[in-house]
Design a binder for these strands. Sequence first.
DNA 1: ATTTTGACCGTGC
DNA 2: CGCACGGCCAAAA
Length: 107
Amino acid sequence: MSAPAPGSFETRVLHVVRRIPRGRVATYGDVATMAGRPRAWRAVGTIMRTCRSPSVPCHRVVAAGGRLGGYSDPLRKRRLLQDEGVVVGPTTLPQFAAIRWTTLDTS
DNA sequence: ATTTTGACCGTGC
DNA sequence: CGCACGGCCAAAA
């Protein structure tokens, strides 16, 4: 089993994503900031791509500006978010500002 | 150690 | 609104 080194950026990112509440979303930039590297959103995407763990709700990570962002299966991502009560537009989240989650949020 | 690769971001046209 | 370009970062090759 190839496990990421403890304390690595990947481990911290996965930890953050796992903390995103159901029905809420966070941007790659937000995750990067919460992981301690505000300018590492690029790497967050790279890590997300390798993250195929079902324990990590990677579908709750969206792009900046409330855009849907990428996914291995875009349709699946939409369905998962809608299943959590998230309103998903054609390529954006109309309620993005309301459901955006950060560590500063009371939850 | 160096190069390539991305589920990105912001700006400009 | 859409597309092109540069910049940014860590992981993988």
